[in-house]
Design a protein around this nucleic acid. Structure first.
Ligand code: FES
Ligand code: FES
Lengths: 155, 155
DNA sequence: GCAATCCGGACCAAATCAGTACCCTTTAAG
DNA sequence: CTTAAAGGGTACTGATTTGGTCCGGATTGC
């Protein structure tokens, strides 16, 4: 189903949660409470995001995390890259030669690259601000539940 | 790493292999020989592709598989959908409500949909014919090995 | 009728992922 | 200076997914 990992999903949840409130730093546990996610998991996510420079972390007694950039300067491609590693759909797109089993027989040894580029472009086009745009002024408040068109939408 | 499954990769290998030769049907084992993949696996792939109408199958003594459409009328999105199931990056994009754990707290309960659409569009833009375009006139013949720019390319 | 071929499902082993726990380092507050 | 509140890192385990294999049918051509 080509799904991205649940952690990445959570990362967006956490980051959107950080967008609200004053500019002060958020601690891991406070974010966990607000998102309803387990605290250790939130901590893990924040660490990964900080490692890639999407978060500014501040240690010590009154420390916490803060978004490193404005929400519209962060796109989902960056978030995915931080959690799941580089965006590469296949093995053979990497630098490592021999990663692919059928290497010498395979006709399109570099054509997935075209697909990669297309997907990456699509992902870069969506910013964190876009993801947070609708509903979130405060609590749940699903204004009549958008009623997704269900399966008819999946390819 | 948001990778697509190895089976999907193989599916493209098999399909490009089917593009060469006359219009006659290909048997599963002959394709296995030519691609170097294990025969049962090839069979499995062909079955999945046939189920989604990408292949025309013919049973019986002189049976085999055949591409249902012209190579440029098949895009990678369709192949992925056939092997991996519908292209949906997250649970909550599906029709099933309650699939997502943090549902009621989650702010962007339909915004991954935007990302999905973008990715799907990107995938639909690449056809099977595109994937097979360079090298394949006959055997391996890697004309000086494209030398992919390695990691610098991954996001 | 017989052999070749596809069809559909069940099945197992391996890899990956999610989640948790533990301990260390850093830093501000008192 | 001391202490406690935070993040930093790593390692482990259970659950889930994936890759690959197998087998007993159903179909068709000779
Ligand atoms: S799949 Fe990697 S070279 Fe063909
Ligand atoms: S992740 Fe599914 S509703 Fe939020």
């Amino acid at each position: 189903m080509i799904r991205l990992s649940k952690l990445t999903d959570y990362a967006v949840v956490v980051m959107t949660a950080m967008m609200q409130g004053d500019g002060g730093p958020h601690t891991a546990v406070s974010l966990a409470e607000r998102t309803g996610l387990p605290a250790p998991t939130v901590s893990k996510i924040l660490k990964l995001l900080a490692r890639d420079g999407l978060m500014a972390s501040h240690r010590g007694a009154a420390g916490g995390y803060r978004l490193a950039r404005a929400p519209d300067a962060i796109n989902v491609a960056q978030i995915i890259a931080a959690i799941d590693g580089p965006i590469a759909l296949t093995d053979c797109v990497e630098g490592a030669p021999g990663a692919c089993g059928v290497e010498s027989l395979c006709p399109r040894r570099g054509n997935w690259d075209r697909v990669n580029r297309a997907v990456r472009g699509a992902l870069e086009g969506v910013s964190l601000a876009d993801m947070a745009r609708p509903m979130f002024p405060d609590p749940v408040l699903p204004k009549a539940a958008p009623a997704l068109p269900a399966t008819a939408d999946a390819i």
